[in-house]
Write a protein that binds this DNA or RNA. Sequence first.
DNA 1: TTAATTATTGGACTATAGTCTATAAATAAG
DNA 2: CTTATTTATAGACTATAGTCCAATAATTAA
Lengths: 208, 208
Amino acid sequence: MNDEAEAESGVDAGDAVTPPATAPGRPRDEEASGRIRAAALKLVREEGYGQVSISRIAKEAGAARQTLYNRWPTKAELVLDAFFAQANAIAARPDPAPDVPRSIVLRDFLCDIFAHLQRDGAALRSLIAAAQQDEDFCAIFRTRFVEPRGHIVEELLRDAQKRGELGAGRDTAMLTALVHGAFWYRLLNGQALDDRLAQGIVAEIFGG
Amino acid sequence: MNDEAEAESGVDAGDAVTPPATAPGRPRDEEASGRIRAAALKLVREEGYGQVSISRIAKEAGAARQTLYNRWPTKAELVLDAFFAQANAIAARPDPAPDVPRSIVLRDFLCDIFAHLQRDGAALRSLIAAAQQDEDFCAIFRTRFVEPRGHIVEELLRDAQKRGELGAGRDTAMLTALVHGAFWYRLLNGQALDDRLAQGIVAEIFGG
DNA sequence: TTAATTATTGGACTATAGTCTATAAATAAG
DNA sequence: CTTATTTATAGACTATAGTCCAATAATTAA
């Protein structure tokens, strides 16, 4: 399979394309991607996904509109990338001390997510919406965002089982869907994501 | 508050506006609303929300595009209305026999929903997406769709508590969010909604 | 019959996502 | 220096949601 030509060209999943190292033609302006991501992040945070056009992001970043489309296939992928470039724009993997019950670790992890979503919840809602209208983006969003965070929760729950804090017969994959589902459900219905919710989810999952 | 003039005019929540009984001017073509809803339902089911334009629905229904906007403020509200006019396009409230455990009733209720969503799941995803981009529609969608179905589950869970099938200390509102959340989470991530999922949700909620 | 009122219709209009193309600019290799 | 190659840019283009408006049609009231 001759995929060398393909591998280094075009718009690809994840980041704004891998640099071709030493290529024949005009080199890509590497700094532009950062400016574009920063502009997208700033404008979407300040005004909301739906209120910001690709044209405005391009203008704010000092680039041509087509340059954005050269690097990201859709607005949704650009914005996802912009938020991910902010490292942990959403939440960091917990590194729990051995003596802390995993229910507490999960609660704190959820509180951490919810705190981030005070700022970025509206953008997350827009990205979830975009994923419903674009299968390709749905797959990328699931791979880059949904599944990694799902795994964190599921590992936590399996760890809790090993420690005897959660029944060995519980289905951790299902519990993970319940936990994340509850917060998506609240987020997508415009309801508050607060510490009380985190506490309540954990109480029902562990205390059931 | 003089709201009489307002009450009978304009585009209103829910249905395609109440008929003004005996009004002065040209009467609304009442049959048109049905044709428009039917066209919207048919086209969205056949081709998908994003693939069907308001213009095509109007054409299919034999009405002017502006007539649709006279009766529904947005595409999302028209489509929501079209699916609701199909009576129970999503799922009926269960009427359980006294001897059936409420966990079984809940499981069957979820299976019923999932069966409907085999056909209309894609449309539901699009409506949820629309709700993220339009606050007004979000409120209408929540009132007409989300909350009624939430109440069904919550009543079922409270009934289960009364019957001693679910711990009295459980938070039924939180459990409702967990149940519905889990299925939204699966739906919105493009995963299957099958009987196994219904069984798994109920097992973790009741069997925890 | 005339006037007032309301709905329907067709068309213009704005804003936007995404595509496509032609031109110019920047680089490597010959 | 010339050629091939790639990127950047500007602008045209399509399709669509939603708005606005003017002309017409259908009705009630006088």
